[in-house]
């Protein structure tokens, strides 16, 4: 589904991604871990097409086609969803209006009829149950005045509404209390199927107890330096990253499940 080939990217002439390789297939769950500042968020944004980053080498293929010439919204419409580490506020725009516009953009893209306010309100209420989100959030402005945890939950609500093929969750667990973590993870698991894929970026093993990864990758210095199965996360939890950072042999060896 997603193939990242020797991806290099920079911002303001500073190189951040230095040759990332990753293969994600339908039905798989991948976890990306790694020290702060190693480029995890950058990787997710580059896949989604954030204009601040310049791709200086390599390629990203989605369902066999390069994403490089697609605008961010076209990538989204193709089925890529990014749950942001820091969700953005859109003052004065209600969650309902925002999501309806997003939903209808997808409908139009898929040659389906647009949906009116009432019909969408029903869909939204249904979806809000998946993340046990109070209905009052539906009419509040997008992320405005939301707590950190509420913002994260809101991201998963959006994912539930848009039903992407590939969801990248960037530290969705940070800022969630243990109950919220369970709810959000259960939500993600409900949305999972053999036809879609999830990439979770996280620092904590505890998320992976709920969303069970098939593959775990370590990103450091803008490269995937180690890949493994679920047990790698446990090892990292125990030992930290230092033992890997010294291990030059592992550098560049990372590519995911084939």
């Amino acid at each position: 589904m997603l193939t990242i080939q020797d991806l290099q990217a920079s911002v303001n002439d500073t190189s951040i991604l230095n040759g990332v390789n990753l293969q994600v297939n339908a039905g798989e769950v991948h976890a990306i871990m790694g020290p702060n500042g190693s480029g995890k968020s950058t990787l997710s944004k580059v896949v989604a097409g954030h204009p601040a980053f310049e791709v200086t080498g390599g390629d990203v293929l989605f369902e066999g086609k390069s994403l490089m010439d697609l605008d961010p919204n076209e990538r989204a419409l193709a089925g890529i969803f990014l749950a942001f580490q820091y969700p953005v506020e859109v003052p004065g725009v209600s969650n309902a209006d925002f999501l309806r516009l997003a939903y209808n953009s997808k409908q139009v893209h898929n040659g389906q009829p647009e949906i009116d306010e009432d019909a969408f309100s029903d869909i939204l209420k249904e979806k809000a149950k998946i993340v046990e989100m109070d209905e009052s959030f539906i009419n509040r402005a997008v992320n405005e005045g939301f707590s950190g945890g509420e913002k994260k939950r809101n991201e998963i609500l959006q994912m539930a509404v848009l039903e992407p093929k590939l969801a990248i969750l960037d530290e969705t667990d940070s800022g969630l209390d243990i109950d919220a973590l369970k709810i959000v993870s259960a939500g993600v698991n409900k949305l999972k199927s053999k036809d879609n894929a999830v990439v979770v970026i996280t620092h904590y093993q505890r998320l992976l107890d709920y969303i069970k990864p098939d593959f775990v990758h370590v990103l450091a210095g803008g490269k995937i330096i180690k890949s493994g199965g679920r047990e790698l996360a446990l090892e990292l939890e125990e030992k930290g990253y230092d033992w890997l950072l010294g291990d030059k042999a592992a550098v560049g060896a990372g590519s995911g499940g084939q």
Partner: peptide, 12 residues
Amino acid sequence: QLFYCNQRGIGT
């Protein structure tokens, strides 16, 4: 802000 909207499939 624009990127956030774009990422949800909303055109610029």
